[in-house]
Amino acid sequence: MARAHGGGVRARVLIRPKSGISDPQGTAVERALPALGFSGVANVHVGRLVELDVEDAAQLEPMCEKLLANPLVEDYEIIVD
């Protein structure tokens, strides 16, 4: 586990629209790609990336539940480097 400066860990949180909820941004990108000559692209979804250094990795999940994601409409994935 890499040490971030000041102790703790470096984490990335990937936030995606929940499957089943329409994602107009993903649809727009999916439609734009063939226009540029990129064929064979499907299931495009656009989400957010939050990078952060945290002293206590156990806080990441409550942070996601409370602020970083909206669990009603978004899934999140925590990656600790």
Binding site: I21, S22, P24, A28, L72, V73
Partner: peptide, 16 residues
């Protein structure tokens, strides 16, 4: 909605 005083959420417009 974010404060959970109301149910649901508001997402990006379908017309983008």
């Amino acid at each position: 909605c974010e404060a959970h005083l109301l149910p649901g959420a508001l997402l990006g417009n379908a017309n983008r």
